[in-house]
Amino acid sequence: MRKQGHGSRAVLAALAATVLGVTGCDAVGGNSPGPSGTGAQKAKPRPAWDSSPASVAAVGDSITRGFDACAVLTDCPEVSWATGGSAEVDSLAVRLLGRAKAAERSWNYAVTGARMADLPGQMGQAAARKPGLVAVMAGANDACRASTSAMTPVADFRADFEDAIRILRRAAPKTQVYVASVPNLKRLWSQGRTNPVGKQVWKLGICPSMLGDADALDAAATERRNTVEQRVEDYNKVLKEVCAKDRHCRFDGGAVHDYRFGTGQLSQWDWFHPSVNGQARLAEIAYRAVTGKKA
């Protein structure tokens, strides 16, 4: 009987050792080494963000094309906040790469008038370059429609943005992404409506859902603008949430949306798109987001 008891104790000891081995993660102290193998790979910390990418690609809409910054109803990519070479702007690419390298190692695939549905195609072009960083600014045209009912549904906006990120990841899994928030369109209306020339240009069809009947302050006009404003906020929530799911993506935290564009930062031709000075301010915001440094 003693021998059997001794054997039972040995079995219990072995069993205890096995259990402790399986649950070792909970049994060891905070400074003890963690488990090895697959569990260790899952526990690896998020990789450090590279604040010095070797190249920059840009996707988006008219803002990233420098529309109406240099001449009326004309693109001016030279002053683009993302990739332009203008010394007045010092674009994100110039600040990150230097002027000479930016001219060789940055690409602008944005298209004036583009909406989020166009971003997957642009992202495919950018991904082919395998850039160190892709700068994204899109969404304003999804809210700037002929009417509020024609604005892009939030669910479609999300699906298109997710698709764009998937396309990038298939070709360039480690490319970093900077995502700018959609500007505050209602604030741009409130600033631009003080200029009679700008309001005449607005009648050509610039963001009618927000800028149509610019001087109207009745209940219907107010509700229309508030509806656009809410949709922009919804879009920015989508950008934040989708970006947060990608380990190599940074959202600007609403910095572009919150920036208080004044008349000096608006185009003298349409009083809505950024002027050269406004493009420079967007470049500063992007640089701070990408590097964590002051401009």
Results as ranks from 00 to 15, higher is better:
5 G>C: 06
6 H>D: 04
7 G>D: 10
10 A>G: 10
10 A>Q: 10
14 A>Y: 05
16 A>T: 15
18 T>M: 14
21 G>N: 09
27 A>K: 05
31 N>C: 00
38 T>F: 06
39 G>T: 11
43 A>Q: 15
45 P>K: 12
46 R>Q: 10
48 A>K: 15
48 A>Y: 10
48 A>N: 03
51 S>W: 06
58 A>R: 00
61 D>N: 14
63 I>C: 00
63 I>R: 03
65 R>C: 06
66 G>M: 03
67 F>P: 02
69 A>T: 11
70 C>G: 08
76 C>Q: 05
81 W>I: 05
82 A>L: 09
82 A>I: 03
83 T>R: 07
83 T>Q: 05
83 T>G: 10
84 G>M: 13
89 V>N: 11
90 D>Q: 15
92 L>E: 01
98 G>I: 13
104 E>W: 01
104 E>D: 12
113 G>C: 03
113 G>A: 10
116 M>S: 10
122 Q>S: 03
130 K>L: 01
131 P>Y: 07
132 G>M: 04
135 A>S: 14
137 M>L: 15
138 A>E: 03
139 G>L: 02
140 A>F: 08
141 N>P: 02
149 S>N: 11
150 A>T: 09
151 M>D: 01
153 P>Y: 12
154 V>D: 00
155 A>P: 01
160 D>V: 09
173 P>S: 10
174 K>M: 01
176 Q>Y: 12
186 K>C: 00
189 W>D: 05
195 N>F: 08
197 V>E: 07
197 V>Y: 13
199 K>R: 12
206 I>K: 08
208 P>W: 10
208 P>N: 06
210 M>K: 01
213 D>W: 11
214 A>I: 14
219 A>H: 05
220 A>C: 00
221 A>G: 04
221 A>E: 08
226 N>L: 07
227 T>S: 06
227 T>M: 00
228 V>H: 13
229 E>L: 15
233 E>K: 14
234 D>C: 02
240 K>T: 07
242 V>M: 11
246 D>A: 14
247 R>D: 08
248 H>R: 09
252 D>M: 09
252 D>L: 14
253 G>A: 07
259 Y>I: 07
265 Q>N: 09
270 D>M: 14
270 D>G: 07
271 W>C: 04
274 P>C: 07
278 G>Y: 01
280 A>I: 00
283 A>Q: 13
283 A>C: 09
288 R>T: 09
291 T>P: 01
292 G>R: 12
292 G>A: 03
293 K>G: 00
293 K>Q: 13
294 K>C: 00
294 K>W: 06
